[in-house]
Every structure is written in structure tokens, then in C-alpha cells.
Amino acid sequence: MSKPLPTAVRTHLTALRALLVLTVLLGIAYPLLVTGISQLAFADKANGSIVEVDGKEAGSSLLGQNFNLPKQNPDDPDEAPRPDPQWFQPRPGAYDPKASGASNLGPNSEDLAKSIEDRRQAVAAFDGVDPASVPVDALTASGSGLDPHISTAYAQEQVERVAKARNLPVDTVRKLVDKNTDGRPLGFLGQPGVNVVQLNKALVEQK
């Protein structure tokens, strides 16, 4: 008969067995169960709330997008993006889901202060408004870099510019903004906002 293993080895083998058993239960069975039920009950949401235009997938209603003019020189990676006046513009950001994240610039950062001032001038000129009236969400980047929402104030600021660029009555565009405003869930959770992706989708569908 072989000698029994030393206690320390036995403890670690017990630990390994425990980890493997729990991995099968909590790391395989549990996510599979949740995925199965989610795909049956909430397939649309579980798969990323995909929006479609004319039967073609056009992104997710939860992930913000850029609405820029085509690049003048597609080979130049440094070319500054130019916003397209036909679309409601999101908060500043790259909107690349492969690299979510924030600027992480501090409250007294000179870089941040300069970006904010540049954005204020650019947005005010683009929307034809007084620089002092540009709302804070138009000047600051979000935490995720994918924020699909803007404030109602920023959406209202853009209404006339979009209506003009699209030859639509201002009232029609304003109604679309109202329709795509998400209030606070249950009336008091979070903060209201206008979903830019949904709003711009509604613009496309406004034939």
C-alpha cells in the first residue's frame, strides 16, 4: 500500500476539486441557463437592442454613434472629423465600442479646460447659438465614450439646424425630439435624455 499524501498536498487537491466543481456550476451552467432564458424571453435586448433601417442593421439603440461628413481624404488618420449638419450630434467622443472608456482628465486639467473651450466655440458656431448657452453635456465626454443620450437642452439647440439641413418643418423635428426623449424610469431614477441614435433613425424614417 502506498503512503498517504502529506496534509498540505491533500488540502490543495481538495481545493482544486472544489474549484473545478464550482467552475462547472457557476462558470458554465449558470451563464448558460441565464443566456437560455434571456434568449427565449428577451431576445431583442439580450442581443444588444439592435436597430434596423430598411431591414438593415444600423447599430444598437444603446450605443452612441458618430454622425460626421465623409472624410475629405480617407487615407489621412489625423483628419479632424467634421459634424454633418443633417444629423443630431452626440456628446464629444470617438464612439468606438472596441475601446470604451473616459478621458480621465482631472477637474483642473488644462487639457480638459482647453478641449471644453474649443468645443464650446465649435458647437456654438455649428448650431448658430450664443457660446454661453451651450449645455454641459455638449462640452464634456461621457464615462463610457458610448453615451447614446444628450440632454433635452442640447437636442433643442440642434433642432433648427437639422430642420434646415433636411428641409423639414421645425415643428416636425421638435416633435421627433419629444418622441425620442427618455424620461426618468419610475419618474425619479437617473436623468432624462434624448437618445440620439433613435432620434436620428426617426429622422431617416421621416420620408
Binding site: 473616459a102 480621465n104 477637474p107 480638459l112 454641459v136 462640452l139 464634456t140 465626454a141 464615462g143 443620450h149
Partner: peptide, 8 residues
């Protein structure tokens, strides 16, 4: 609002 989400 730098680094914060509009919906929150």
C-alpha cells in the same frame, strides 16, 4: 459631467 453618463 466629464466622465459621467447623461442617463445617470
Amino acid at each position: 459631467m466629464e466622465g459621467k453618463e447623461q442617463r445617470f
